[in-house]
Write a protein that binds this DNA or RNA. Structure first.
Lengths: 187, 187
DNA sequence: TTAAAATTGTGATGTTTGTCACGCAATCAC
DNA sequence: GTGATTGCGTGACAAACATCACAATTTTAA
């Protein structure tokens, strides 16, 4: 579990054994079952989560009727309600498991300690944050330029594994179309 | 001009005079006229830009027919085609001035030097990148949860000054609706 | 100053997408 | 196993939005 984390971080910055031991000491492991909520709207968000195995969705519930999926998080991804996490406020979105999931948890205080104590980790998180920002902009572009069918094709091209792992109803919630419309697209 | 940059950075991290002198030495000032392109699709993207005064738009031209605005950048904002900038590849979007604009330019090499030479600057950029990521996610949420009218109202509430500074055709391009639909919304 | 370009509104019409309703198969929980 | 829930497709209809066309006004550039 920790070894996977080391591999993940070393795609960006190389670490000594001591450095990694220091890093690993700031994480705690947790496991959740399918359908379980890691946090819900209104909860305080104590951790950022690194997904060791399993699958998560970050979702916003509009007037407690419709569910909108802001992002899926698969193995190797970082996820949280980052606004609530960084500002220590209450979650506006819920983080829920779509499969049995193992995560490594990083408290905000430990995130800051890691950044302050190890320049490499601040660089690592900067790299991740830049990549996240760029990916979000690409998704915005796909809303601006593409219709439902095109967005669906882009999603399948980018994350072909998702189709096997999540029901189409949820893909529709991610794409911003009704499940009926998505259903009529598939041919 | 440099003083404004110092104020901007010191909202996040406090600096000594020496530190700021070191920082300022990595930027170069440039000025552009209204309608002028800072870069176009296909250009190499050498700089990230901090807007001292004026207004920019980052836009994607779909099949050289329709224009889609990924973001506006007003005073105090950082802007670039960050994917092209960070990966040293060609721009897929164009950065154009909507008003006469003064910017401070930061080459990628100097960005890395700043991050490596001054821990505070890496922390500053990390803070900015996190904020940018969160803001992009909010915009994605607005596409998922809101119709054209609601997105327009959210935009005006968040950036009331924009309405006075850019034509509605461009607001429509930012919101992802036709200018005709936006026009019919305004009452 | 004056012609060209940009901006905005609005009518008519077509397309895309959402909503409601129903049925059926697969999966889950006890 | 069995009843309940979930997932998925599809028809009928309504709403949202895009497109095309035209006109009027304002802004821009030589």
């Amino acid at each position: 579990m920790e070894n996977k984390l080391r591999e993940h971080i070393e795609k960006t910055v190389l670490l000594t054994d001591d450095e990694f031991a220091f890093i690993a000491s700031h994480f705690t492991a947790k496991s959740y079952k399918k359908r379980e909520f890691i946090f819900r709207e209104g909860d305080s968000v104590k951790y950022a989560y690194w997904v060791v195995s399993g699958l998560l969705m970050l979702a916003y519930n509009h007037e407690s009727a419709k569910q909108h999926i802001v992002s899926f998080a698969m193995e190797d991804w970082w996820e949280s309600d980052f606004l609530a996490y960084h500002t220590q406020s209450k979650a506006t979105m819920a983080l829920q498991c779509l499969e049995d999931t193992h995560v490594l948890c990083l408290a905000l205080e430990d995130y800051h300690k890691l950044c302050a104590g190890l320049h490499k980790m601040e660089h690592f998180f900067l790299t991740k944050a830049n990549a996240g920002h760029i990916a979000s902009q690409q998704r915005i572009l796909s809303f601006l330029t593409s219709n439902a069918r095109e967005r669906y094709e882009q999603l399948l091209k980018r994350y072909p594994a998702l189709l096997q792992r999540v029901p189409k109803t949820l893909l529709a919630s991610y794409l911003g179309v009704s499940r009926e419309t998505l259903s009529r697209l598939t041919y």
